[in-house]
Simulated scan of single mutants.
Amino acid sequence: MKKILFSIGTLFLISGCVASANTNIALEDGPPVQSITTPYDDLLSCVAEQKSMQGTWAVGEILDQTGKRSIDTDGNGRFISQGAGDMMQTMLTLAGAEKTVNRRDPRPIIMEVNWGLRKANAFKAMDYYITGSINSLDFLPGAAAELSIAGIGPRYRQHRAVVGLDLHLTDAKTTEVISAVNISKQIFAEQAGFGLGRFFGTTLVDFDLNGGNREPMQLSLRSMLQYGLYKMVSNIQPEIKAACQYTIENVQGVENLKQSKINESFTTENKTSSSEL
């Protein structure tokens, strides 16, 4: 009887906290709005200080070509953001590009040309543009450990994924690729918990405590794009690397020496064509 009365009381308590259909409920205040920052923001600021990204820059397509989709109770969607190109266009302005033209959506331009409001040759031509793709997303086998004695004990689980992308810097006058980079990053997540499930006399007590950390995938993608822009420009302008490498050394796990040598070999062959940059 006591259990029934307790359940009824709990039901009335819950119903008292729920507003009627004709009343707005109070909305909770969450964390404040803020600008998205990464450890590589200082790197772009350093590139901007060199004032070496001369000419007119644009961003083409940077596509998600991983082919991976997420399916859960909230709906279907891709693991990787579809806005990598827009991220890169913002990065061009932060990196101090002399001029940035918007080629992300040509429809407004085409519309005004078709309506006779503007002439096609009135728009500023690009000198350089960036294209690429996010082309790998691999989920790695994780590690797990669990210990239980008499139904009581801790557990730990680790998850990892590898994201990879390729970026190309192209001379718009000749369509020659003057710098190319490929970058990968491991995304890390972990979970830890403590469980208790046992009888105390005739009473079963079941208790579970969980916590975890997960590195934001899309914020990591932004970091990769920032680093990729720096690498493409510094490959053909060694003075940028000399001035800004110290910021890289403050971030762990970003420099692959073997790949750097490959990129430097590639861009040395194309350095003549990039002399105007």
Score class of each variant (00 low, 15 high):
E190Y: 06
N135P: 12
C17M: 09
N76Y: 13
T37S: 07
E239P: 01
V251G: 05
S45Y: 11
G201F: 15
Y230C: 05
V59K: 11
V18E: 03
I130R: 04
L219A: 14
D72T: 07
I236R: 08
G142V: 08
M91Y: 06
S179D: 00
I187G: 03
A172Q: 01
Y128E: 00
L204W: 12
R157A: 06
I130Q: 01
F12D: 01
D41E: 11
E276P: 03
G211E: 14
N213P: 05
Q218T: 11
W57A: 00
M88D: 04
L43F: 11
W57L: 01
L196N: 04
D29N: 15
Q50C: 04
Q252I: 02
T66V: 09
M1Q: 12
Q245V: 12
E276Q: 06
N250C: 01
I130E: 04
H159N: 05
L94A: 05
G75F: 13
N102V: 03
T56I: 15
A122R: 13
N270I: 01
G193F: 10
E49C: 10
Q89W: 06
L117E: 13
N114R: 13
K261I: 02
D42Q: 10
Q54N: 12
N76P: 12
K185T: 01
N102D: 14
E61Y: 15
R160F: 13
E112M: 07
L117N: 13
A26Y: 11
K261W: 03
L257T: 02
